[in-house]
Amino acid sequence: MTELLILVAVFVVATVVGYALISRVPPLLHTPLMSMTNAISAVTILGAFVLFSSRLSPWEALLAAVALAAATFNVVGGFAITARMLRMFRRK
């Protein structure tokens, strides 16, 4: 039960802090922001690793592998494209 309360607290604090910080991001950077948050939402990859830390039935292994693939695509693609986009922003 304490664990659940901690999780709820984490959710509330992260939402409030995230909202306060992200609402100050200028429109100039909204596209890179969204692609970076895409990478961050792939923290689900940690959930996939947790699944792979104990014995899995073949079905579970299949679902976990697809989840791992989706999350990997998300995190690598997200950070890489954000970096590439941000390199294009130059000032003369």
């Binding site: 959710f11 992260a14 939402t15 609402s23 922001l33 939402s41 923290v43 689900t44 940690l46 959930g47």
Partner: peptide, 28 residues
Amino acid sequence: AAAFCGVVTESRLLVAGGAFVAASGTIL
């Protein structure tokens, strides 16, 4: 979705990461 997935897997990091993304998407 990631945040709820974090509650099931009891991962604080997943809950926080999901919450950040949800906040960002909502703002946009």
